[in-house]
Design a protein around this nucleic acid. Structure first.
Lengths: 140, 140
DNA sequence: TTTGATGCAAAGGTTTTGCATGTGC
DNA sequence: GCACATGCAAAACCTTTGCATCAAA
């Protein structure tokens, strides 16, 4: 069971960090592990609620903040939308957003990563993190 | 007078688009043309007010929305901050933000631009707009 | 003169927080 | 049992908007 084991890995990471695993957090970890899309706080709240877990929206936000700080999830802030979240699967990737359908796709490009590091280095800096989003339209 | 002529160019662009040039808009155009940094709506409001122009914050927002739609200014949304704005000088560039000082720097890299277009094309898309931000720290 | 722009204050949407209570470890 | 997590409701924050008034062209 792919999803269960992923949720389990999240729990372990948190426990190691000394974070308590409450019923609410376990539910959110499961919902996050199962998410194939990039849900926002409200959607996560709905999904956890649908699963029968009693979780308040405030707790969803507090948990997301904690999980993000632990590096277990990634916060995404696309233009003109509430923040979305995705499980951090270790491998870094960037996002492409179809402006017509709203669909979010992921991609990785090593050359772009390297170029970014070079640009920063040339100016005397090192990259802490970065954000690259392509807002695109299907070609015809 | 560099700034004055830039502000004048903005006015011309707006007039051509059939937008009225009010006292408030002229003041904001001057403040924007003079901005070497990347001010947010509140800062622009303060600067216009300091110049003696009576402008309400609501009008600042409405004007920024209009100017952005006209392509006269560019809206920037960095992580965890209110939106900032910069005059659109025609040439596209991306941003580097020093996470320690908050300083915002601009850069251009043709290769990154090309790679982005290639990535989108490979997946059957064309780029409408994009956003690239490097959050950096000074190297030591 | 006409139509769009403004100011004010109120509301909008998302996210955070204070405080009393509950609960994992 | 203690410290941390939760729920609720209120507030914070940035931004937008309804409506009466004003002013650019």
């Amino acid at each position: 069971m792919e999803i269960e084991s992923r949720a389990q890995a999240f729990e372990d990471a948190l426990r190691r960090a000394g974070v308590r695993i409450t019923r609410q957090r376990a539910a959110l970890l499961r919902v996050l592990a199962a998410a194939g899309d990039h849900p926002d706080a409200t959607q996560l709240h709905q999904r956890a609620t649908a699963e029968g877990a009693g979780v308040s929206l405030a707790t969803v936000y507090r948990t997301l903040t904690a999980l993000n700080a632990q590096g277990v999830i990634q916060k995404l802030e696309f233009e003109g939308e509430p923040a979305r979240f995705e499980p951090a699967d270790g491998s870094h990737h960037d996002h492409m957003i179809d402006v017509e359908t709203g669909e979010v796709m992921e991609f990785v490009n090593e050359r772009i990563e390297r170029l970014q590091a070079e640009i920063a280095a040339e100016m005397g800096y090192e990259i802490v993190r970065h954000r690259l989003e392509l807002y695109v339209r299907r070609r015809r």
